[in-house]
Amino acid sequence: MATIMMRVRQIAGIALYLGLANAQEASWRSPVNVLSRKGLVADQISTIWWFLFSTASLVFLVVITLLLIALFKKGQAVPKGPVQENSSVRPILYLGTGLTIIVLLITAVYTFISMRTLAAPSQKPALTFEIVGKQWWWDVRYEGESISANELHIPSGEPVHFSLHSDNVIHSFWLPDLAGKRDLIPGHPNSLWLQADEPGTYRGSCAEFCGVQHGKMNFTVIAEPRAAFETWLEHARAEANAAVSEEARVGQAIFMQQGCAGCHSIRGTAAQGEIGPELTHLSSRLTLAAANIPNTTGHLAAWIVDSQSIKPGNRMPSQKLSGEDLQFLLSYLMELN
């Protein structure tokens, strides 16, 4: 028991520490909550939940109270002879069923009304992002071009439209703080709208079982004021900046020769691979490996040389690189901001 208590305290402590010491990391790693009212859609759904919860609690209390009274009141055994169904307790039956029907009817009507409200935003979304589910990461596209992976920015305070599809297996796009989920289905394009009321960093994940690394297929959405968002979008759509330092230039050559370019693309260079995530502004992202590890040099190095230990079964092979080459490659990648 002591061990468990210690564990509980330890986790609480770490969360507290992360919250104070590293705001950036803390937000993509912090708890999410379906009931938080941080987005227009999530807010509505949260209201539905509290309605459902209060109704259900009431029903639960009534039924359990009835059951307890029934169990502990003085009853009688049936006498020998022909058994008659007893009609004196029928009112419990009629009343109970009648109330059930009324509660359920109200629930149904409320459901349809809220579905109508949630069908479309009152203001037509000005922005459409295209999200393509991959095994096991997210390709973020804008006007047909990949601009990021596993991370995107949206303007806060306005509805944003997502068009969702997949060219492999079924995935599901879920941002619990902002809205409900929607599946990405091959051959069946879907769409979703949501709105982040306040700027912030929101963690999302894949909610449909999609293979061996379904468990580590997360993503991050950063909501920010319109102006900041537009700066980001412009930057995200721009080509990569040229390698500056000597090390980075060597690293770029290694990137092209070692086969990295076969899978990854860096806009503005010869790297045009389409299998893995695009890396044009890699070092400006918060996370690596689909929002599972922070984007720091150490993590990046580990990911390059041993991605299979971090995410066993993922599609990126662990790279065989000399120590020097690894340092050059890291310098190059860290310059892609």
């Binding site: 059951l67 009141k73 009853g75």
Partner: peptide
């Protein structure tokens, strides 16, 4: 999905009423 709870509720209340009458 909501309406299917009606027959289940009905059964529940039959059970409760039966217990109500009887000696447990």
């Amino acid at each position: 999905s909501i309406v299917v709870a009606i027959p289940t509720g009905l059964q529940f209340f039959v059970w409760i009423a039966t217990i109500w009458r009887g000696k447990v």
